[in-house]
């Protein structure tokens, strides 16, 4: 964490609850600095996705203060600018891809940001190439495989040239090849990001800090714990430790 600069995302005492339920997010504080790569690991239903939606302004917290890029954001109008600078990758690619063809879907973001058609196409092609999706331009989005859909929705987010990425379980349901591809892409990106995943190995490989969420709050836990799980390797019968 870079203590010298100001946090680009600063959440203070955010509380949010879904109608008729207990708070999912409870007095949550989060400071996110430029260059940070944070992993969030927590059981289902602990408010990880909700947290992302609050940062994007899709959900309005009951109380608390949100500051992004040094400015306090409150109204829908304030979030319009935030959304062009923060990219959110949804859990389900089908939610993200709604245009008939891949090129149109990737160009949708840049066009909304006021780019000309030619510029939007140029950016989209570059992004697709970067993700190894050259030649996918005219494919029909809903006929893609699950892995291709995830990569294309990643492209739709990257095409907006965001400064921060919020990735909601980007590996779920993918085969090993596509997983490897996404990990490579993340390691090669020069963007700060927050990553939700249930896989500790994946987070360890792609993030600098790993946090967990409990009772609607973010906990950072630097301590390592001795724990047990079944595994298999040679000489396994001889008492030993993994560090």
């Amino acid at each position: 964490m870079n203590e010298n600069s100001y946090p680009i995302i600063n959440l203070e005492k955010i509380t949010y609850s879904y109608p008729g339920g207990p708070p999912v997010i409870n007095e949550l504080d989060l400071k996110f600095y430029h260059g940070d790569r944070i992993g969030l690991i927590a059981p289902n239903g602990n408010g990880k996705t909700t947290l992302f939606h609050i940062i994007m302004g899709l959900l309005k917290p009951a109380s608390g203060k949100i500051e992004i890029f040094g400015k306090s954001v409150r109204e829908e109008r304030d979030f319009l600018d935030i959304r062009r600078r923060i990219g959110l990758l949804f859990q389900d690619a089908d939610d993200q891809l709604f245009s008939p063809t891949v090129l149109e879907d990737v160009a949708f973001g840049p066009l909304n940001l006021g780019r000309s058609k030619e510029e939007a196409i140029e950016i989209s092609r570059k992004t697709l190439n970067f993700l190894g999706l050259a030649g996918f331009e005219n494919k029909i989005t809903f006929k893609l495989s699950g892995g291709e859909k995830r990569l294309v929705s990643f492209a739709t987010v990257l095409a907006m040239e965001p400064e921060i990425l919020l990735l909601d379980e980007p590996l779920t349901g993918l085969d090993n090849q596509t997983r490897g591809k996404i990990i490579d892409i993340l390691l090669n990106l020069d963007i700060s990001y927050i990553l939700i995943s249930h896989e500790i190995d994946f987070l360890a490989a792609t993030t600098k800090q790993i946090y967990t969420m409990e009772n609607g709050m973010i906990l950072s836990d630097e301590k390592a714990y001795i724990h047990k799980h079944d595994h298999i390797h040679q000489f396994g019968t001889i008492p030993h430790k993994h560090m």
Binding site: M56, L80, D95, Q96, F98, T156
Partner: peptide, 10 residues
């Protein structure tokens, strides 16, 4: 959710 995703992309 689709509408949210669209809003996220401006």
């Amino acid at each position: 959710r689709v509408h949210q995703a669209m809003r996220c992309r401006g």
